[in-house]
Design a protein around this nucleic acid. Structure first.
Lengths: 151, 151
DNA sequence: AAATAATAAATGTATTGACATATAATGTAA
DNA sequence: TTACATTATATGTCAATACATTTATTATTT
């Protein structure tokens, strides 16, 4: 009885429609709560996302194109996002030796340190998710995979 | 095995983390596909959302504040959103008789006609959701409610 | 090798959104 | 009734985003 009260709507076309609205609503709820936490560290969600991608590959460099492919929301102008991180000394950008079109992006020590701090915040954020058991979390994830038709 | 390949990430901190990323990724996938369809009719998702809220109450007027409360992503500047719809003659805006601070917003015939067309598009969009059975859709929706702690 | 296509990234521009603040009307308390 | 708080909406400003285009480099074709 919840999404109904949250968006003050009692009728849905059908189960799938209710599910779709619920997905959008729940995700908006979830990512807003993350944005609030990140703002205290002067980061946006996409910036945080990029930093974690870079840490995942560290110390290997990552090209802008790779970043785009790995991002949650495939975005067009990732290079300006990298600019922002560069301005904060959280990443460094060097010309890729094999391909002079491309650019190698690497997270800096400062970036790693910031992410280290944010891990605690992230733990805190993830606590919210524990209304679901581990089993339920897996179940939800599997349903999402199936929804996208990739099972 | 899917979110892993879609965002090229094989390791997650834990089941809940994987679920959270999957939620964000799947919802982004879902709403992007809707945006693409809407753009052909020169509407954004929030605008479409507002129009449907107005249709839901039609012919009763809806105040801007009500719109905000009913929206998926609670947004600060709903009045400029109404402006946009007004400019396209999809809604009309009149001063609320009982409360001169408030504004009554009503969907126009043109707005209703547009939504009528878009219903077909929406059906089409919802077809995507049928990788899940009705039962699975309900299951997913219930898990989302539970995730938000509102069960 | 020259011409053409394809790829990686950056940039221009207009729109959208976030956030704080302003304006106006109403409600409430002294 | 005046002062003060609250509510409803609008606006100013700046950052973020979308989308198209541009530049530079590499790959492919003839």
């Amino acid at each position: 009885m919840s999404i109904e009260t949250d968006i003050k709507q009692t009728k849905f076309r059908n189960a799938h429609h209710r599910m779709a609205l619920n997905l959008i609503y729940t995700t908006s709820w979830l990512s807003n709560s993350q944005s609030v936490l990140l703002k205290a560290h002067d980061l946006t969600s996409p910036q945080y996302n990029v930093l974690r991608i870079l840490r995942g590959q560290h110390p290997k460099p990552v090209q802008v194109n790779d970043i785009i492919e790995r991002m949650m929301d495939k975005m067009s102008n990732a290079s300006r996002l990298v600019d922002k991180l560069l301005a904060k000394d959280l990443v460094k950008r060097t010309e890729c030796p094999h391909d002079r079109r491309a650019v190698d992006v690497i997270i800096t020590e400062k970036g790693l340190a910031l992410l280290g701090e944010l891990d605690k915040m992230q733990d805190c954020w993830e606590e919210q998710l524990h209304h679901l058991s581990e089993q339920e979390a897996n179940q939800l994830s599997n349903l999402l995979d199936k929804l996208r038709g990739s099972v």
